[in-house]
Simulated scan of single mutants.
Amino acid sequence: MSKMKELTSCAALLIDQVASRHTDRTQNHPRILAAIETINTKIPALDPLRVTVGDEIQAVYETLGDALRASHHIRANLFGEVELRFGIGLGDVEVIDAERGIQDGSAWWRARAAIEEIEQLAAEPGTAGLRTGIRDERSEANPLTVATARLVDTQLFRLRPGAREALRSLLAGLDNQTAAKLAGITPSANSQRIINNDLRTLAEAIETLGQLP
């Protein structure tokens, strides 16, 4: 737990499991903890990813880009194991109770509104793949951010397991030979997964979102 008391400009990230009541939470929990540990070592946070009440996970980041990077990387780490939904809110965060990890502030209100909105949208026909909600009311907010994040969601939703595995390796910066070995396939087969699913373009979009202020 960080020792921050109040931050006036940051990104709150709220994560929950999709259809968690219909999954084996006992089995999923250690997988989630392992993914959290991996992401926390890779992406600097003002308050690192941690499990809170029920099946929720939360963190606080300095920028929207860092919050999006964390969301995409934890999602990739759990491909095929746990399906996650994300809400990101930009604003202020105040620590109410540091010992118990209780926080408040406009960033959290917006993160909650964002995750509820994306859950509702995903229930509608034609938008089942949406997983990332963003509420950014800053004057410098880029109007293309939400649309781009939703396009990425849609593409991720359509990928088959093998293509998701190849994308995970791309995001991790692995070379083709190493990625193929981890997947148990030939380098040529891994290259075909990347080419046939336009994974380099998708990875570039994800990495670009991760650079947003």
Results as ranks from 00 to 15, higher is better:
177 Q>G: 08
165 E>L: 09
126 G>H: 05
126 G>I: 05
171 L>C: 04
180 A>P: 00
127 T>K: 15
162 G>V: 09
170 L>F: 01
170 L>C: 06
122 A>L: 02
155 Q>G: 08
134 I>G: 02
140 E>N: 14
151 L>R: 10
155 Q>F: 13
133 G>W: 00
124 E>V: 14
125 P>R: 08
121 L>Q: 09
154 T>I: 10
132 T>V: 15
178 T>E: 13
125 P>A: 03
174 L>F: 12
166 A>W: 05
180 A>F: 06
136 D>L: 11
154 T>F: 10
176 N>S: 10
152 V>Q: 06
173 G>Q: 04
117 E>I: 07
180 A>S: 12
134 I>V: 05
132 T>L: 11
165 E>T: 13
118 I>P: 01
165 E>I: 08
120 Q>R: 14
125 P>Y: 02
131 R>G: 00
137 E>D: 13
118 I>L: 01
144 L>G: 09
166 A>D: 06
163 A>I: 04
121 L>F: 12
115 I>G: 00
135 R>S: 11
178 T>I: 12
171 L>H: 02
157 F>C: 06
116 E>G: 11
155 Q>L: 14
143 P>A: 03
135 R>G: 09
122 A>N: 10
173 G>R: 07
137 E>A: 15
168 R>A: 13
120 Q>W: 11
116 E>L: 08
142 N>I: 13
112 R>P: 02
135 R>Y: 09
131 R>P: 02
130 L>C: 06
176 N>H: 08
126 G>C: 02
170 L>M: 00
137 E>V: 15
116 E>W: 05
132 T>D: 01
151 L>M: 15
150 R>A: 06
141 A>I: 07
113 A>T: 14
154 T>L: 07
159 L>K: 02
112 R>H: 06
153 D>P: 02
117 E>R: 12
122 A>Q: 03
176 N>W: 05
138 R>Y: 14
129 G>Y: 02
143 P>G: 04
134 I>M: 01
161 P>F: 04
149 A>T: 04
135 R>K: 15
153 D>N: 01
158 R>E: 15
131 R>K: 13
167 L>S: 05
136 D>E: 10
136 D>P: 11
176 N>P: 00
150 R>E: 06
156 L>M: 04
167 L>A: 03
115 I>T: 01
152 V>Y: 08
159 L>A: 02
139 S>H: 14
113 A>Y: 11
124 E>P: 05
142 N>R: 08
148 T>R: 12
144 L>T: 10
125 P>G: 04
